[in-house]
Write a protein that binds this DNA or RNA. Structure first.
Lengths: 235, 235
DNA sequence: GCACATTTAAGAGTATTACTACTAATAATC
DNA sequence: GATTATTAGTAGTAATACTCTTAAATGTGC
């Protein structure tokens, strides 16, 4: 536990000097380049968490920021792009978490277990990373991120690379699986099944408990999917 | 193959005299009670498939039906309720498919395999059931159904039973798993992981192929999830 | 066959939302 | 200190979500 806290501190220091990169086409003006931009992202996160993406309007966000709609439109073309910005940032952040957590573990099966633990981790405690409240962001990713690709614009968005962050995370986990069992040829399917599964189970635990066996604390979640992955890879 | 076609014919005849029931609170006026109501559902399906739920408006639907917005509002309170109506109907239909396909199979593992095949089936060929174009409906369920519960209204909707159709399907599959292995205590989690997984993999195969190992014909899909379920249950 | 009640759909509106063009204020550079 | 960019605010328009009222059609009893 001590070593983990130590690692976290080192990471935070490291992170203090670096930034998560997101696709530049996601914004009209870099939200990190101004005070207002940062507040748009910060408060946007809070407002989406409070009222949901459907009810979010730039007018409401503007009111909260004591600015105007048009000022927000200078940064983001639409609330859809804002969502894509937030989720892309999340996948970038998660990739770092994955890399740090899995380096120096030689056994691929152990590495897979650690990776799934990172995917299923509860980002509690008002953990922040720059302007990003990661705990809030994690909640939004669970309930809203699939709307980022379940849209008629998916093919255009894919072409310009809006999903590359998610793809990189999937590739990393998928590569660990292939290392654990080189003959296994469903590593991408298994990885996305686990990632989306984790999101769904956490959501169901909160809102539709009869659809899951996981409790609100999601205690067995990582365990279940680790066991699942290992059994499938063993076959 | 002959016997399967025969079974399908018997089912269709049976279905001809019966109706899929959906929660009455989902509509203001039963769409089955009038010509316009039926056309709203029928063309609503087509329009959602064409332009997506986000772009659907009752005005556009009204234009297509050569009627007015307010007439549509007499049947459905909102497009969200229309989506819930459509998805509820789908789960009702799927439950029948499940029941017919799995009766008279004594081995629970075999029954589970058949059930997963039903869940993963490709509803092609302009298969219709009353006014419902099931092939279209299946496509919409894949890309839009999760929006029916990924909403801030989820708890209210759940209280009045809007998700009971989905829950019944999950319970049926889950019960088969428990029969196959009575000590297994993650049957709901495994079932929803498979159902949502099937939807995601089919969607990814069409739009984000690097996130899946399934091809556009989804040939190995049922196989993969059957193997997965059996390995997890065997542990 | 006609009065009356009910059902059905259309018309006409309001409030909100998404988005844009233009203008004023501020900061940066020469 | 003048000029030029940058930034944010004002004031719109068009589309959307939703409601209230009215007209037409249908059905029912006598």
């Amino acid at each position: 536990m001590v070593s983990r806290c130590f690692a976290r501190r080192i990471m935070n220091n490291l992170f203090g000097t670096m930034q998560i990169q997101v696709n530049e086409k996601l914004y009209l003006k870099d939200p990190n380049s101004s005070e207002l931009g940062k507040r748009i992202v910060q408060e946007g996160l809070i407002l989406i968490d409070e009222i949901g993406l459907e009810s979010l309007t730039f007018r409401k966000l503007a009111k909260r920021l004591e600015t105007t709609e048009s000022s927000i439109y200078r940064y983001f073309e639409s609330k859809f792009k804002l969502l894509l910005y937030l989720t892309s940032w999340y996948w970038g952040w998660l990739e770092y978490q994955l890399v740090f957590a899995t380096t120096n573990i030689s056994d691929p099966k152990k590495r897979l277990e650690v990776a799934i633990n990172v995917l299923a981790q509860d980002v509690t405690s008002e953990e922040t990373f720059g302007v990003m409240n990661v705990a809030l962001l994690n909640r939004i990713v669970i309930s809203e991120s699939s709307k980022a690709y379940l849209t008629k614009e998916v093919d255009d968005a894919n072409k310009v690379g809006f999903y590359s962050g998610y793809k990189r995370v999937v590739k990393r986990v998928s590569d660990i699986m292939t290392e654990a069992n080189p003959t296994f040829c469903f590593s991408h399917t298994l990885t996305t099944t686990i990632i989306e599964g984790i999101h769904h189970q956490k959501y169901f635990a909160q809102h539709l408990p009869s659809l899951t066996d996981i409790n609100k604390k999601s205690e067995n979640l990582a365990n279940f999917y680790t066991q699942m992955a290992l059994s499938v890879l063993d076959k």
